[in-house]
């Protein structure tokens, strides 16, 4: 499935592929915004959630808590606006998905009985949450691979 609807091999995408790509793009944007807003409103709670992963010192958790939600929000904005920012937004979304997968999988493997601190706040970490984040990464990376193939759109040059 070509989730960006960009023609990977020169062929024009079908309407189904275009709408699927649009749905995935809007879905990702909504997901990132839903995750970002509560963290932006309460960065201290998010810092505590990061601290419970025991991956970073307190200062690192605080720094991430104050920056990562904005990165999520701006990435969502890039996905919504599209145009010349679409490739960059998918690249950032792939990076975010990688970080989330690493954090959740490491907590799951270390058998930390902590809550995720992601969307919905108090959801527990289990095999399902790891699988879900792996799926996010695959979708984002696939979309990134196709969106990054097409150069940023520029106004058409006059031909005459």
């Amino acid at each position: 499935m070509n989730v960006s609807a960009a023609p990977a091999s020169g062929a024009a995408p079908t309407p189904v592929a275009r709408y699927t790509a649009l749905a995935i793009r809007l879905g990702f944007a909504a997901l990132l915004l839903t995750a970002a807003i509560p963290k932006i409103i309460a960065p201290d709670e998010f810092a505590a959630a990061i601290g419970r992963y025991r991956l970073l010192p307190a200062a690192g958790s605080a720094f991430i808590a104050h920056t990562l939600p904005w990165l999520e929000a701006v990435t969502a904005l890039g996905l919504l606006v599209g145009r010349r920012w679409l490739g960059g937004a998918w690249l950032l979304a792939s990076g975010l998905a990688t970080v989330f997968l690493f954090a959740v999988a490491s907590a799951w493997l270390r058998k930390l009985d902590i809550t995720c601190g992601c969307i919905g706040g108090n959801s527990p970490i289990n095999g399902y949450s790891v699988l879900l984040r792996a799926l996010f990464l695959v979708l984002a990376a696939r979309a990134c691979f196709h969106a990054c193939a097409s150069p940023p759109t520029r106004p058409a040059e006059p031909t005459g």
Partner: peptide, 25 residues
């Protein structure tokens, strides 16, 4: 080369996120 096109917009979005985070702080 495939990702080259995305680096600049990604950098712009990163800078925007850094600006928002700084303003919020």
């Amino acid at each position: 080369r495939r990702f080259h096109h995305a680096l600049r917009p990604a950098g712009e979005l990163l800078a925007l996120a850094a600006l928002f985070a700084s303003l919020a702080t």
